[in-house]
Each structure stands twice: as C-alpha cells, then as structure tokens.
C-alpha cells in the first residue's frame, strides 16, 4: 500500500476503506508528491458534512467534550470524524499527541475516525492541511466533523475558522474581563461553552461572557453567540450544547450565510495555495542563484540590502507575468 497510486487511493477512500482515508491524511500532512491531485479529486465529493471547531485553553476540557459529542452523534446514527491538533516542539519537531486518550466512549467504534495532527510549525500551512484533512473526512462520508485545537495563537484561530460553527470553551474563573478581550476569542466563537460548570465561579464566568458579548458590535441579522454550560465529564449539558450547534447550522442555511462562508473559505484556500506556490517558485530561483546564504552574505558585508535583492529576484518574474498577460 505504500506505493499506491493517487487515483487508486481516492477510489479506495470513496469506497469506504479506513486505511485509504488514513493514508490520504498522511499524504496531506506530509505534503507528499501528488497530494494536491488527491485533494483535487476529492473536492467534488465534499460539502455534505457539518464541521464544528472546538477551541479553548489547555485543560478546559476540549477532548472530554469531543468524546461526549461523538458519543451522542453516534447514538443518533451519524458518522463522525475528529481531527485533533496538538502543538509540537519547535526545536525537535517532536510531539506527544494526547487527545486520543480521552476518546473512551467511542473506542473500538470504527465509525468514529479520530486523527491526531501535530502543528509542525510549517510556513502557516497547518490550516491548509487541516482544511484538506476535513475534506478527506467529508468525502469519506462523515456526517459530523469535529476539529479540536488548542486556542492559543493565530494559527489555531485560522484552523478553527475552517469550521462552519466554532465553539470556544471557557473554564470557570478563567481571569478577569481583560483576559477575555486580550485572547481575542470573542470574535471567533458562535457558541461559548463554560465547561466544568460544577466548579465555583462558573456562574460568574457565564455572566461575564454574556456582558462582554452584549458589548460587541453586531450587524442586524448576525448570529447572536450563545453561552451554554456543560460538565463534559458526566455529559451534563452536552445535549443542549449540540442543540445550539444545530440552531447555528439552521441559521447558516436560512440567512444565506453558508454560501458567504463557503465563498470566503474558497478565497482563503486559493490565497494560501498561491502564496505557497509563489514561495516555492522563489525558493527554486534562490537556489539557482547559489542559495539564500550567498545572497545574505552580501547583505552582511554591507554590499546590498534585503530590499534590493528582493526586487532583483522578483523583478524578472513580474516582467514575465506582465508579458504573458497581454
């Protein structure tokens, strides 16, 4: 299977083979040769799944909540895919991907496809890889796809934005109002989940969140973010939470925002791909000019500046494109 051709892999995935789905995601993660053809071939088979993004600070209970969500979806006869993103070491690239350990309610159920991904610290490509992995799960026939990520940093926010609906977990007493503003989480959440609601301070956190949400600027017709309480460990409040997710999905359809969201997502995808391709082109060009180090040495020696070199490298490319355009 290691040398399987792309078309075979796509056929096997569409036929429902778990191994083919797993290998497809590996190729997407590794950016193996030919991965783009695979994603391209999967594209027409996507668009049917509801994608939920879950984010929140470490220890807020994301994985436990995801486990309970998957269980409820399974009980309702839905097929579930989960992608859990964990940080990796910027020094060794190594990572311990620990979210799977919480998936106790649905273990041995192969119709819950759980995949751990590490933030490989690559050129901001993680959100692209996650979005493509979601497509693979979607094409495979999953009804509900959950993307779970640590809510710290811009790249994680970007990942979560690949979801139709975003839930932000807030642990009780997680700091004063300013902390919440600082994290910038208010803008991205469609639903705010105060998890571990049995702990003291939960009521206060709910009130604070509601106050903050009231103050945000919204256009008429916008979705009004909801605040719900859960105790993921016991499953309390999870049904209500899923109800709110459904409400948001319905709203997306009725308000016409789903189309708008799709459009924005496609635009973002295209931009990311172009950026990657352009930077690859330039990397080749730099290599042809003797490598980046040689150029940088000239800057070190004070002979030139980064701006001059950038102009020098990109100039011919721009000319070439201009000539083609006519």
């Amino acid at each position: 299977m290691a040398t399987q051709d792309a078309p075979d892999l796509v056929d096997d995935l569409l036929a429902g083979k778990h191994r083919a789905l797993a290998r497809t995601i590996t190729k997407i993660e590794n950016r193996s040769a030919g991965y783009r053809d695979i994603v391209s071939a999967l594209y027409p088979h996507t668009g049917d799944a509801d994608v939920v993004g879950i984010t929140g600070s470490p220890g807020s209970g994301k994985s436990t909540l995801v486990d309970k969500m998957a269980k409820q979806y399974r009980d309702a006869g839905e097929e579930v895919g989960v992608i859990a993103v964990d940080p990796s070491s910027p020094f060794t690239g190594g990572a311990v991907l620990g979210d799977r350990i919480r998936m106790a309610s649905t273990s041995t159920d192969m119709d819950v496809f759980f995949r751990s991904m590490s933030a490989r610290g690559s050129l901001g490509g993680l959100s692209t890889a996650t979005a493509d992995a979601v497509k693979a799960l979607d094409a495979f026939g999953k009804d509900k796809i959950i993307v779970e990520t640590v809510g710290a940093g811009q790249s994680e926010v970007d990942i979560v934005k690949t979801a139709d609906t975003v839930a932000v977990l807030v642990p009780p007493s997680s700091g004063d109002d300013v902390q919440m503003l600082k994290a910038g989480i208010l803008e991205i959440g469609d639903v705010f989940v105060v998890n571990k609601a049995d702990l003291t301070g939960a009521d206060k956190t709910v009130t604070e969140l509601k106050n903050m949400l009231d103050m945000r600027e919204a256009d008429p017709g916008d979705w009004t973010p909801e605040v719900v309480e859960t105790i993921a460990k016991s499953g309390e409040g999870v049904e209500n939470f899923l109800g709110v997710l459904d409400d948001h999905t319905d709203w997306l359809d009725e308000s016409g925002r789903r189309e708008q969201q799709r459009h924005q997502r496609h635009a973002e995808e295209l931009r990311n791909l172009l950026r990657e391709d352009a930077s690859d082109l330039l990397a080749d060009e730099l290599a042809a000019r003797g490598g980046i180090d040689e150029l940088v040495e000239r800057i070190d020696a004070g002979e030139t500046t980064p701006y001059d070199i950038a102009d020098d490298v990109v100039g011919p490319l721009a000319e070439c494109l201009e000539a083609q355009r006519d």
């Binding site: 060794t92 273990s107 041995t108 751990s116």
Partner: peptide, 18 residues
C-alpha cells in the same frame, strides 16, 4: 518525542481492537 517523533500514547488497559 525528543527524538523528533510524533507520539500518540494509547493510555492504560486498552483492548487489542482499540
């Protein structure tokens, strides 16, 4: 992890199927 691998730990008491 320190060798640069991505490691998934299963947790204790897993069945072969898991």
């Amino acid at each position: 992890r320190d060798a640069g691998f991505e490691v998934i730990y299963s947790g204790l008491h897993k069945a072969p199927e898991e």
